[in-house]
């Protein structure tokens, strides 16, 4: 009889007792944000443009940080520009950044008090616009090394 009562109590305890789970243990608790245009996260692309407009959305009250960096000859990352945008009630952000000629490594982070920072990066290779003009004005004939200019 005692065994049965004990078994019943154990059954009730296992299936009906409240279970406490802390959010930190079961989710990342990172700031939720997304880049909707301007760059492709994780991607490398080329451009002739001097500027790029990065747009997206994030949580109200968070801060988006955009840092632009270039690698020097020794491979060290040099930061040359930073932008900070406070996110308001619409949750939107839009920032036009200036690119330098060469490989620009862009880091985008979203942070908010009480939440983990989340981030992403991408690479944009900016080429000199004069190259674009030369490419448009000239033609290349297979087998010939010289570009013939159309003037």
């Amino acid at each position: 009889m005692k065994t049965k009562i004990f078994g019943l109590l154990l059954f009730l305890f296992v299936f009906f007792a409240p279970t406490f789970a802390y959010a930190d243990e079961y989710s990342s608790n990172e700031v939720n944000f997304s880049v909707t245009s301007g760059v492709v996260i994780g991607d490398t692309e080329s451009t002739f443009d001097k500027t790029r407009t990065i747009t997206g959305w994030s949580e109200n009250g968070s801060v988006i940080s955009i840092s632009l960096n270039k690698k020097n000859a020794s491979g060290t990352l040099n930061n040359y520009a930073n932008y900070e945008i406070e996110i308001g009630p619409t949750g939107l952000f839009s920032q036009t950044v200036e690119l330098e000629i060469g490989e620009n490594i862009i880091y985008i982070e979203a942070c908010k008090n009480g939440k983990n920072t989340s981030g992403a990066s991408c690479v944009i290779k900016r080429k000199n616009r004069l190259i674009k003009t030369e490419l448009e004005n000239g033609i290349s004939i297979p087998g010939i090394n010289t570009m013939i200019a159309l003037y």
Partner: peptide, 16 residues
């Protein structure tokens, strides 16, 4: 730019 809060396609000014 993915700003779907706008009904129409609006062209807005931006600067660096």
């Amino acid at each position: 730019s993915g700003f779907n809060i706008f009904y129409d396609n609006v062209f807005v000014p931006q600067w660096t």
